[in-house]
Design a protein around this nucleic acid. Sequence first.
DNA 1: GCGAGTTGCTCAGTGCACTGACTATTTCTT
DNA 2: AAGAAATAGTCAGTGCACTGAGCAACTCGC
Lengths: 145, 145
Amino acid sequence: MAAVDLSTHPGHLARRLQQAHTLLWTTMVSEETTSPQFAVLNALAEKPDIDQRTLSEHVHLDRSTIADLVARLGRRGLLERVRDPRDGRRNVLKLTDQGAAVHRGLVTRTARMNKVFLAPLDEEERETLLRLIGRVADAAEELRG
Amino acid sequence: MAAVDLSTHPGHLARRLQQAHTLLWTTMVSEETTSPQFAVLNALAEKPDIDQRTLSEHVHLDRSTIADLVARLGRRGLLERVRDPRDGRRNVLKLTDQGAAVHRGLVTRTARMNKVFLAPLDEEERETLLRLIGRVADAAEELRG
DNA sequence: GCGAGTTGCTCAGTGCACTGACTATTTCTT
DNA sequence: AAGAAATAGTCAGTGCACTGAGCAACTCGC
């Protein structure tokens, strides 16, 4: 009675999309390293020696979520967390050699997975999908500032 | 070094989209009832007296996730969980009057929120976005069966 | 009708993700 | 230079989401 069709609700679809992605990720990319963890490794591969705050902005994650994530990656020896001598509040982050190696391995596997994931769409549709999601996400993030 | 552009990665975008949605949801729809909880209420409004397994298929959630969710909604008095006398394994679920009332209230607020969320897109783009996400999600779910 | 397999649910464990409160450090103001 | 404000990080609490193990109840094959 008065129920709604969830397939027209972007939030519900977003959750399903992410869920489907996670599933494919664990089978095709890695069982140990998750997609958000890869995002962190990737950000540090591009910009080493940043603090957790800056990192959280790069990967669009909350600072307490980042703290957890970084702790896990640190425990696995993939990154180093050092107190900044110039500013005692900051933890400066850097990939270890092992972390860089893991990142390199994941880059190719991730590319392969993305192909499979987007296989149902043709080239133009893929671009459209990524562009539209990006616009909606950007706009919603603006609302917060 | 050899870092990748995450804005071309559907998984990362999906996470950002869902994150942006959750944020808007808590400000525009409800602080108590989450989007997945609404999905459950909505499914039960449409089809009462189903068990958790069937429900989990309707809303695309895992059985153990559903168990948690249903327990929370039950604690708040929004639904009833009764052992099926015909089949002692099943919990039969049904909205309470209060649950139905909460659902009704959320339907209109959710519609309003979806408009704001998709405001950056024109009508054609909205349809396209929802359709493309749906196709990718459906296809990925097929891979599991 | 009985054992084997299937099905529905629960529970423990792990990880993502947020808020709100707190601590420590730095910077700004006067 | 001292107090106020801002900043970086941690911690507790809640909720979503999955896997894998286990239990109870039902169904099927013979």
